[in-house]
């Protein structure tokens, strides 16, 4: 469904992605983990053309595109089949929860309002936010905003959803509600590429894990194998520091 080959990206001469490749099959939940600054966000942003990658190519839905040479029209077409969930939610501040969900349908896809609202309500129900349909983002908690953002992503019936650390801006007690929604999506067979620091999510929900460091993929493996038998020394070191940090967070 999605294959990325040798994507590269520099910011002002500093390479951030050097030759990253990865594959996401239909129905996969792929977790991308790695230390801060390793280029995870940049990777997702390049895949949705929020940043322009310098090199490499991507096959999406059977069509191959060379980064840096993708026509505007193709970008629009690919974006219609993808959705993005941001770390900071980025709900439209001047729109209600329901309007946030229907905006992409009514405005970008010309779906009639009544049908869009029907879809919108279904999606809000799915994330448990139907009763707050008329609330503005400023009236919602972080966890609620992120759930609305997930409903917005679902509404356009994407073939893949990119998540960039969807829970890391949330208070610990609010991450659970968002992760539960994501787990449900995974169970329903949604294809997802998830940058996360939630090791329990990576271990229990994703079926593949990609470990990135300094703009390269150090190790990519099925989730169970990645956690139980990491091959690379750097992966083991990462998992150890992670364990240590998680312990420290606990007390």
């Amino acid at each position: 469904m999605l294959e990325v080959r040798s994507i590269q990206k520099s910011f002002g001469g500093t390479p951030v992605l050097r030759d990253v490749s990865l594959t996401v099959a239909k129905g996969d939940v792929v977790a991308i983990v790695g230390p801060s600054g390793s280029g995870k966000t940049t990777l997702l942003r390049c895949l949705n053309f929020l940043e322009t990658a310098d090199g490499g190519e991507m096959t999406f839905d059977g069509e191959t595109f060379r980064f840096g040479h993708v026509a505007k029209r193709d970008i629009a077409r690919i974006r219609r089949k993808t959705a993005f969930v941001f770390q900071s939610y980025n709900l439209f501040r001047n729109k209600t929860a329901l309007q946030n969900v229907t905006e992409g349908l009514i405005v970008a896809r010309k779906v009639p309002r009544a049908r869009a609202e029907e879809t919108g309500m279904r999606m809000l129900e799915k994330v448990g936010m139907a009763d707050r349909r008329d609330a503005y983002p400023s009236q919602l908690s972080g966890g609620q905003q992120q759930r609305v953002a997930i409903a917005r992503a679902l509404a356009t019936d994407p073939e893949i959803i990119y998540f960039d650390e969807p829970t890391s801006a949330l208070d610990p007690e609010l991450t659970g509600e968002v992760l539960a929604v994501m787990r449900q999506l995974a169970d329903e067979g949604m294809t997802m590429l998830v940058v996360t620091h939630e090791m329990s999510f990576a271990r229990n929900v994703s079926n593949r894990v990609v470990f990135m460091e300094n703009g390269v993929v150090v190790e990519a493996a099925p989730a169970r194998e990645f956690f139980d038998h990491p091959r690379e020394a750097r992966t083991r070191a990462f998992l150890r520091t992670f364990g240590a940090r998680a312990d420290m967070g606990a007390d």
């Binding site: 974006r79 993005f84 439209f92 501040r93 001047n94 729109k95 905006e103 970008a108």
Partner: peptide
């Protein structure tokens, strides 16, 4: 915030639509 524009792009809105419906009202 630039995130408002990026969210608009991600849901498939054109620049003009983002301006008119998201950025200018805010």
């Amino acid at each position: 915030p630039v995130g408002q524009i990026e969210a608009g792009r991600c849901v498939g809105m054109s620049c003009l639509q983002i301006m008119r419906r998201i950025v200018l009202p805010q």
